[in-house]
Design a protein around this nucleic acid. Structure first.
Length: 877
DNA sequence: CATAAACCTG
DNA sequence: CAGGTTTATG
């Protein structure tokens, strides 16, 4: 007999015959980006997304229209090149910076001394409020509009804020006043020690100050409310461009009907329009949802942040007070004689100074006046300079006191010339000043460092968005990374922070991952699509599959995984990343939080499920789509996730982290619902397979509904469709094979053919779609399978298989046999539930539904291809 | 020109 | 199951 059972023969026979069942044409609607299509769909999208997120940041993103690489660089405080470039010479700028710092310190001191507990905080809060409310710094400092920054509309908070003020001061001062003048804000003799201090620290301070300012500003401007809107606009635009065709479409429900129109596009009439309709409504909805969510979360987050900030400030105040006390102590010990007076003097002087400061800045000149306004408004801030200023003030006090002391002593004890004693006193004072300076400086530095670190730790979403992912793919993280010392991260981060905005250190995200590379880690990488099956699974025997399937994909993996990974990373993890503040001021809390900065990533990554796929080769196996995306951004250590998804995932992760509770995070299990991930997981694949038992030709809408925990985009949709396509392929191949086998075996009538649960055909199918056999295959599937088999049988017997497209008729029949997928499949957790159910011999209400033979009116869209009437015989139905 | 499905191949 | 190719459709 001819080799009926030969697959190769089969293939040859049907070779290149396109049996276009057309059922799924609709799927295309999802993302057919005809509009945006053109060349760089991916690139454009990526760029658009980058832009969106930068907008969300409301941070100054230099327009992202540049190359991707460029867009990556956007940072708030770019030392160079930014709008707020430092134009003045270094020295000038330094002095100006210092001046500013001092000024600000004065203003703080004003309030602070009298009411130690309240001022900074209140001021800060006030400022934040003002910013949030007014929200438009630009307006406040409108005069600056003429300056360079104006060219960057997108940068509400922009670079200007930190650098520009300095620049202003610098330029002004350089023109109008000398650096020296700048250096003596207190009006004290320049010769005093302060200069040294300044020299020592100004650089440091500048950086710190910039950072802190940025942080604070960013906080106050957290993208929350305003941004989403903007970003949404952007998105909408993108949407319009990309899938404007989707809008008018009927609700998803109708989608199913669409394909149903027998001759495909006919019902749709203007097929294009109908398609367009469908397209538009979907993604927008989802995104909108996520955005509203985002907004809410952000608000909460903000409040939380505020609270934390407050605490932080209080701590800092305490420290300052301590410093003050220390100063007094030192002073006292140094000079007992003037005890009471000194205290009084100090207090008075400080008070005076602070009171003076405003006046000074007012008179101080035009160059400073403007700055002050600005600084007050926009850098409300918790400025590191403040501490320095304080220290300076104290020092000055001391100097003054010393000076007074001199005459007094002279008058009292010495009738002689002022020579020896006077100078000695002066020297002593100087020394004391030096000591104090140093001490204060170190203390201040610590404080500032701490603060900065604390702030740096939480990679606010903004920076992340502004600075697209670029995470280094897990592959690139050798074990060393896991073991790496925290300091590295910290330092690294700090560097980054100083450099520009706070840029989450990609390393951190992965570093945060519980080590043990080879173990049950989640994918460190957000696989955009699916993790491929492991080779082992491929080549091993089925027995193995069953166990491994369940174990690896199913329950075993994540259950174990989550607790561990979460707990492991929880300490620092996302929440902490958002709420680092509780950390002790002077402690070293920052090492652990390493993962924190990239908490977003972490969470996101974690969201993609099981499979510590590093060990497997899954990671290397990517879908075309994903790889394509990567390509677009490979410029820097390829990003683990493709840009678009990454961006979105970031916001998502943001939401998650903003929810901020450990519990929340814990609840977000990779497979679980609440977590919308941008990639398809092996579990999704499994789910799809199970769904295949119900539907062989799911519509894209259906897929969306049933994979609600996946953020749909073109790739995802295509991927899912492809899956089902593959499923069908296998299914039909099996059918044909068994049909031919039956024929070869001498079966003469279809009546002899049946598909039962223990027949070979079913076993083969079950093995494919339900390897673990932990799912009870609906009876309906058996029926369909039987029908299919008979169709094939009949067709072959009838010799139809000579027709290249003979299968088409069969497809046509089968595609109508889809049954409703149980609702439970809509649950992201359906896998667990289903499996559990099956274990406990469920009395599935579901199956009943399914079983009800509801041959849907789902029509066969375009059966365009030839085979017209040949097989109209749908015998078995 | 793009999409999607079928078809092939690995 | 993914990648690539072909075919059909809009």
């Amino acid at each position: 007999m001819p080799d009926h059972d030969s697959d190769s023969l089969l293939n040859r026979q049907t070779k290149r015959r396109r049996v276009d069942i057309g059922v799924k044409r609709t799927v295309g609607s999802i993302a057919s980006s005809t509009a945006a299509a053109t060349t760089a769909t991916t690139d454009n999208i990526a760029r658009a997304k980058a832009a969106i997120f930068s907008a969300m940041n409301s941070l100054s993103s230099h327009s992202h229209h540049g190359s991707d690489t460029d867009s990556m660089e956007c940072s708030v405080v770019q030392p160079h090149g930014g709008p707020g470039v430092m134009t003045a010479s270094d020295s000038e700028s330094k002095s100006n910076v210092l001046r500013k710092l001092l000024k600000r310190a004065n203003s703080y001191e004003d309030t602070m001394m009298p009411f130690p507990g309240t001022t900074i905080i209140s001021q800060l809060l006030k400022n934040n409020m003002a910013k949030n409310g007014g929200g438009h710094e630009r307006g406040e400092r409108g005069d600056r509009g003429d300056r360079g920054e104006s060219g960057f509309p997108g940068s509400g908070l922009s670079n200007a804020s930190s650098d520009a003020p300095q620049e202003d001061a610098c330029s002004n001062s350089s023109q109008g006043s000398t650096p020296q003048e700048c250096l003596s804000p207190f009006g004290r003799p320049p010769g005093l020690a302060t200069f040294d201090i300044e020299r020592l620290n100004d650089e440091h301070l500048r950086a710190k100050r910039a950072r802190v300012e940025n942080i604070i500003r960013g906080m106050s401007h957290s993208p929350s409310v305003v941004v989403p809107a903007a970003s949404r606009h952007e998105r909408d635009h993108e949407m319009d461009g990309d899938r404007e065709m989707e809008l008018d479409c009927p609700p998803p429900q109708s989608q199913q009907q669409a394909p149903s129109s027998p001759r495909g596009g006919e019902v749709c009439g203007s097929s294009s329009s109908s398609r367009e309709n469908k397209r538009k409504q979907r993604l927008p909805q989802q995104q909108q949802q996520s955005f509203t969510q985002l907004v809410c979360q952000r608000k909460e987050q903000k409040q939380e942040e505020r609270r934390q900030l407050k605490l932080q400030l209080e701590d800092m105040q305490k420290q300052l007070r301590q410093l003050q006390e220390k100063f007094f102590q030192i002073y006292d010990s140094t000079d007992d004689s003037e005890h009471t007076d000194l205290h009084n003097d100090i207090n008075n002087d400080i008070g005076n100074m602070s009171e003076d400061s405003p006046a000074r800045s007012d008179t101080g000149g035009d160059d400073r006046g403007g700055d002050d306004l600005r600084s007050d408004n926009e850098m409300s801030d918790l400025d590191p300079g403040h501490f320095l200023d304080r220290a300076r003030a104290l020092l000055q006090e001391q100097a003054l006191l010393a000076d007074r002391e001199k005459p007094r002593r002279e008058g009292l004890g010495r009738s002689k010339g002022q020579g020896g004693p006077g100078s000695s006193m002066h020297a002593e004072g100087k020394q004391l000043a030096e000591t104090l300076k140093q001490e204060l400086n170190s203390a201040m530095t610590q404080v500032v460092d701490t603060v900065v670190k604390v702030f740096a730790k939480p990679p606010r979403p903004t920076p992340q968005q502004a600075f697209p992912p670029l995470s280094i793919p897990p592959e690139r993280f050798p074990t060393a990374v896991n073991g790496d010392n925290p300091n590295f991260h910290t330092a690294n981060q700090r560097l980054q922070c100083f450099g520009d905005v706070i840029i989450p250190n990609p390393l951190d995200s992965f570093a945060s991952m519980p080590g043990m590379p080879g173990t049950t880690n989640d994918q460190t990488e957000a696989l955009p699509l699916v993790v491929r099956k492991t080779p082992s699974e491929h080549h091993h025997h089925h027995h193995h599959h069953q166990s491994s399937a369940v174990g690896a994909h199913g329950g075993h993996h994540h259950p174990a995984l989550h607790p561990s990974s979460l707990s492991a990373s929880m300490g620092f993890s996302p929440p902490s990343f958002r709420h680092p503040f509780p950390l002790p001021l002077m402690g070293y809390p920052f090492q652990s939080p390493l993962g924190a900065p990239t908490g977003g990533y972490t969470s996101k990554d974690r969201s993609s499920p099981d499979s510590m796929d590093l060990s497997r080769e899954t990671t290397s196996l990517r879908t075309k789509m994903s790889s394509g995306h990567h390509m677009g951004h490979h410029h820097r250590s390829c990003s683990p996730a493709h840009p678009g998804s990454t961006a979105e995932s970031l916001s998502l992760s943001l939401i998650k982290s903003e929810c901020g509770d450990l519990q929340d995070m814990a609840d977000i299990s990779p497979y679980s619902s609440s977590n919308i991930q941008e990639g398809l997981s092996p579990n999704h694949l499994k789910k799809a397979k199970l769904m295949f038992f119900y539907t062989r030709y799911p519509s894209s809408n259906m897929l969306k509904m049933f994979f609600s925990d996946v953020k749909f985009n073109r790739c995802i949709t295509s991927q899912l469709i492809k899956w089902f396509s593959n499923f069908r392929e296998f299914y039909y191949i099996q059918m044909e094979k068994f049909a031919r086998q039956a024929i070869n075996d001498g079966v003469t009538g279809v009546e002899e053919l049946s598909v039962s649960r223990d027949c070979e055909l079913f076993r083969a199918l079950n093995m494919h779609y339900n390897k673990a056999n932990d799912f009870e295959v609906p009876d309906r599937f058996l029926e369909v399978a039987e029908i299919t088999l008979r169709e094939f049988f009949n067709a072959i017997v009838a010799g139809k298989d000579v027709d290249p497209s003979w299968k088409k008729a069969i497809y046509k029949v089968i595609c109508k046999l889809d049954s409703e997928v149980p609702e439970i499949f809509k649950s992201p957790n359906c896998l667990q539930e289903l499996l559990h159910e099956s274990y406990s011999s469920r009395s599935s209400p579901l199956t009943k539904q399914e079983i009800s033979t509801v041959v849907r009116s789902k029509e066969i869209p375009h059966w365009n291809t030839g085979v017209s009437s040949k097989s109209n015989q749908v015998p078995l139905m």
